[in-house]
Design a protein around this nucleic acid. Structure first.
Length: 265
DNA sequence: AATATTGTTCAGCA
DNA sequence: GTGCTGAACAATAT
């Protein structure tokens, strides 16, 4: 479930396992998943280097291998990272693997192959080329910026929150969660949201991402009033006791409480 | 067995 | 040109 909080946790995991270790070999068994560059280029640029830091923009992950050299990973719907040593710990569906000199390996696992492997000389250029908007979990992202962004959008609030060119990092699960916490129906139209609603959504956007990251993006650690653990038709709303409903918005399953989430349309 | 699934891209349309 | 919507994509779990 890699949305922003998940990728943030992958970054922390990477930082605590894979920095400052010499890279002996890079294996890319799934060349089709490499985008815009050759897999050869990635291997050549990583071999013999050490990762010095990692960063994230929206759902994209960047690992710095040298000055102006970054491995880029996107996790699609099912991607993850695993650092391991023993053969019996080796995960299935490895699409890229970094073998370190200390005999540990970092595997990029992606069963459904909807992720992407890439490489860039400039993170800013990469973000621009991808047309990604402001990162949703950036302390410089303020209410005034959010207001400005909303003015340029049309359609439903949920589609807006999920649109990576407006705001990078929020996907289906967390868009639902933010709107659930803000008591706003996902199909509410942007032009109907007054400033009170905008403030509320923005506050919840921040608090939901914060709490999700504190919970290590794990469902079982999430606060009890989160929708996340109750995403099923007919479930009881953990906030007001209403019924959880499901509908399709922007081609994705949306879950919301029919009782306390108000529809503005 | 049929159905659902966390994301992005691209064609089609307003 | 613009920007939104919905289908397609791959492979698995239930």
């Amino acid at each position: 479930m890699p949305e922003l909080p998940d990728v943030e946790i992958f970054k922390q995991y990477f930082n605590s396992t894979s920095l400052h270790k010499k890279i002996e070999k890079v294996e890319i068994p799934q060349k089709e998943m490499v985008e815009d560059v050759s897999s050869r280029k990635i291997m050549i640029n990583l071999k013999g280097k050490k990762f010095s830091s990692a960063s994230r923009h929206g759902k994209y992950f960047f690992a710095k291998a040298a000055k102006d050299k970054y491995l880029v990973l996107h996790f699609g719907m099912t991607g993850s990272l695993k650092y391991y040593k023993l053969k019996k710990e080796k995960p299935e569906y490895i699409r890229l693997q970094i073998n370190f000199k200390n005999n540990y390996k970092l595997a990029y696992v992606c069963p459904r192959k909807l992720g992407k492997i890439s490489f860039t000389e400039s993170i800013d250029e990469f973000i621009k080329k991808k047309g990604l908007g402001q990162d949703s979990y950036d302390e410089n992202f303020k209410l005034a910026d959010f207001r400005k962004l909303l003015k340029n959008g049309r359609g439903s609030i949920k589609s807006f929150l999920m649109n990576q060119s407006h705001l990078a990092g929020i996907g289906n699960i967390y868009a639902d969660e933010i709107l659930f916490q803000a008591s706003v129906h996902p199909e509410s139209q942007l032009d109907m949201l007054d400033d009170e609603y905008i403030k509320r959504i923005f506050r919840k956007l921040n608090s939901v991402l914060n709490k999700a990251i504190k919970a290590k993006a794990k469902k079982k650690n999430m606060p009890g009033n989160f929708l996340l653990a109750h995403r099923a038709e007919g479930e009881e709303c953990p906030v007001c006791g209403g019924k959880i409903r499901k509908s399709t918005i922007s081609g994705r399953s949306s879950y919301f409480c029919e009782k306390h989430q108000i529809k503005l349309a």
